[in-house]
Design a protein around this nucleic acid. Sequence first.
DNA 1: CGGGGGATAATTGTCAAACATTCACGAGCT
DNA 2: AGCTCGTGAATGTTTGACAATTATCCCCCG
Lengths: 247, 247
Amino acid sequence: MTEPDSLSRAAPADETIAEDLRALIVAGELGPDARLPGEQELAARFGVSRPTLREALKRLAAQNLIRTRRGAAGGTFVNRVGWEEAREQLAATATLLVSTTPIEAGTLGEARMALLTACAPLAAARRTEPQLEAMRAEITLSSEPDTDDRAFCASDVRFHRILGEATGNPLLALHLAGAIEAVQPLLNMLSYRMRDRAEIVSRHSAILARLTDRDAVGMLAEMEALSRYTLDLVRRAQRLRAERRAP
Amino acid sequence: MTEPDSLSRAAPADETIAEDLRALIVAGELGPDARLPGEQELAARFGVSRPTLREALKRLAAQNLIRTRRGAAGGTFVNRVGWEEAREQLAATATLLVSTTPIEAGTLGEARMALLTACAPLAAARRTEPQLEAMRAEITLSSEPDTDDRAFCASDVRFHRILGEATGNPLLALHLAGAIEAVQPLLNMLSYRMRDRAEIVSRHSAILARLTDRDAVGMLAEMEALSRYTLDLVRRAQRLRAERRAP
DNA sequence: CGGGGGATAATTGTCAAACATTCACGAGCT
DNA sequence: AGCTCGTGAATGTTTGACAATTATCCCCCG
């Protein structure tokens, strides 16, 4: 019935269908919130059975390209991919990479520093009062003695995310956030001494102060210091763990 | 009350199963190249039918987390997620975002410039001879008069990708490549005049010369110039198109 | 005449059983 | 020994049905 076309030798039907639909969406043929035909009709149109078509749809759903609703007015709809969704997906990719690939701590720190360097001048020029306020709030949260390590790390991530948003450039913020979040799993494994926390909080405060003054050069210096300190911290923790594992 | 699910009325089975498996992979329970149980057994273990389980697997396949092979020694295997795969996925996300979200050209250019700025010092310090050679090759290719516009753009993307790799920091290269590739769809819509091409090629050459000399400051200046020129180009094209659409 | 409530139809979610296809491995033939 | 063919295991695909959900419409009641 369905003749195998020349290319489908290597590519299963659901994959090619998913790519076809994806191309339609990317090309703008199917705008945000557009409703796709029902599964039966789509299946007929592509010449496959409904389960196979559904596999294709699930592929798109996994990429957050579509959503489905059951019921009378239900169906499959094209998702609007906004900055938030893109950031989440980017962070997911980066996190997966970092958590499954052996990467030296120095590499992570260097990338982070480089991206922060790229953001600092823009952030200094464009930061808004609400953003400063939000960063102050994160510093306060980090200072609380009863904040546990994971919450401390999460706050750290948010601090830098706001810094990225302060550049006023969503695309830049996107990449900064992706890189920062990717490091979180590594940092989550640390357990901070009180002195370390105090040091980090104080450096964050210094960065914030420079940002408030719109002093980009000062920011860079403080970021550099924070970066060095964090790297030291990670290296120390790694050495400690290595010694404990093979004493 | 009688509902087992605390949040969201009911998450479809395939989604929760996909998340469960993903968690196993990310946590390292299933290392790269590990073979998952057969579909029948997995289906039985999760208490669903085989089609439903397959939908879950397709979700993971769409994220490049697993691959499947048919036949006797076939099955489902955990993928190793390397730099290349991550870059592709990141670029796909960014491209989708850029092509479906209205973004000002200035925002794109600014992000690009900021990332290049972040890379320049590292690249100047660490570039290797083969990388310089590869960049020279791209410049040569761009200079060919019979290179069409799409190939010209693709070469441009590769030029910058190599520049990112020259930083010696794969994570940084990843983000730079993602940002650069995201802009490509926009640039692909341009049709370059010969004079524009010559200008771009000459600026690339200048950047490469500074990179060869390990002159980071000079690189920044040339990049800045290239960035301004490109932005002008895009703006001019946009104005032209707008006039043609509503004269 | 207006509003509430239940039947209804459309649509996705799930299941079951089977057949098709691919591929490694080993038995058997030459 | 080397080659071929069968066999079994696994994914890929189909068919057909039933379950669950939800907007809509119509009817009945107030």
